[in-house]
Nucleic acid binder design. Structure first.
Lengths: 197, 197
DNA sequence: GAGATTTTGATGCGATCGCACCATAACACG
DNA sequence: CGTGTTATGGTGCGATCGCATCAAAATCTC
């Protein structure tokens, strides 16, 4: 039936309202009534599609993560296959930075969920199963680089990703300009992979 | 008058209740009634000492930051003056990690405020004026190290601190063990300062 | 012990919250 | 065309929120 994709579209539309509200006023402003207003639908519809508020917040996060991964993969694949490993690793790490309004909004929302993970034991499981694929991906990229002889590519990947998350937070706070952040990223890549030139 | 320090004690006691609640159930659970219960005083007293909820949250953060800085400074000064620059830098960075319950609770609370900074324009100023001293401190430590010839110690300091913040987040999520985090920190120090041995 | 300060109590007001109930409009499909 | 699923709107209930008001204890200070 076509109603399935209509259903998915509706859910996405409502989830988008959740993101918008969360990014603008925080997760505690994500009430059923505000979400309904933001999405331009009735509060009853939000209940119809997601049940209760907890389920709404959880589903909105899942949809956000799906779209984020799809967008990141698309942006990286657009670079082509024949770029140097260093450039590829750089692109993966840059994906974690709020370099446009889309990603900025996304990481603001993710930060809000991050804090909830720290106090809500029910959500804590979701956080743990979300990321480790990222480290593996980056590690495999680093290992494929002939010019790099790292004794532990996975450790380097973990190191780089932790650094990128730190940059992300400081950029969200407007403590760090884009160009400055990229300069630090390149500096770290130099230290970890060896000078490129 | 001695009432001034009594007043400060009372404010600290109530602020402590704010931290406890925020670390356990998040900042949105910090209501005047809950804070009063947690502190073992009447709600009226919380109003008496802090006025409204906004002022309470702001004051609780300021007191938290003051205590954090004092504790960090004390812990670092306890190391003595004659330790190598690398060890000193390592100690400064370790101070940013949740290595005991005190710091864990503190960084959970700070993370909650961090997210509020992203949406509350009134608080955004506080975030910007909080940290830059940390980078300067670490940069001066790095510069004092004769075995290090960095072209830009401040950039190295920024890099290391961003990385430490990333570690902090992953540790708070229990995605990273303490020993693993310290191994990554040492690995990065090797890359930035040069191998120690 | 008088006077100032600190602390508590009871209580109410308007607003908002999540959630549920009921009725009905729009639409798909045999 | 009738029937059943899907989608929508309106509305109220109990709970909680921040904040305020009026009054009075309890404690401290000199």
């Amino acid at each position: 039936m076509a109603s399935d994709e209509n259903k998915a579209r509706r859910r996405r539309q409502i989830a988008e309202a959740v993101w918008q509200l969360a990014a603008r006023e925080g997760l505690e402003a994500v009430t059923l009534r505000q979400v309904a207003d933001e999405a331009g639908v009735s509060m009853r519809l939000v209940q119809y599609y997601f049940g209760n508020r907890t389920a709404l917040l959880l589903a909105a996060l899942e949809i956000l993560n799906e779209e984020a991964e799809a967008a990141a993969q698309q942006r990286i694949e657009a670079l082509g296959n024949d770029i140097p490993a260093r450039e590829l690793a750089r692109a993966v790490l840059m994906e974690l930075l709020p370099l446009d309004e889309d990603r900025r909004r996304r990481y603001v929302v993710q930060s809000a969920y991050f804090v909830r993970f720290l106090t809500d034991p029910q959500l804590q499981e979701v956080a743990r199963t979300a990321d480790p694929a990222l480290e593996s991906l980056l590690a495999s990229i680093l290992e494929a680089d002939p010019s790099t002889r790292s004794d532990d590519a996975f450790a380097d990947a973990e190191l780089l990703i932790a650094f990128a998350f730190g940059l992300q937070a400081e950029m969200l706070l407007d403590q760090l300009e884009v160009l400055h952040a990229l300069r630090l990223l390149d500096r770290l890549l130099d230290r970890v992979l060896g000078q490129p030139r």
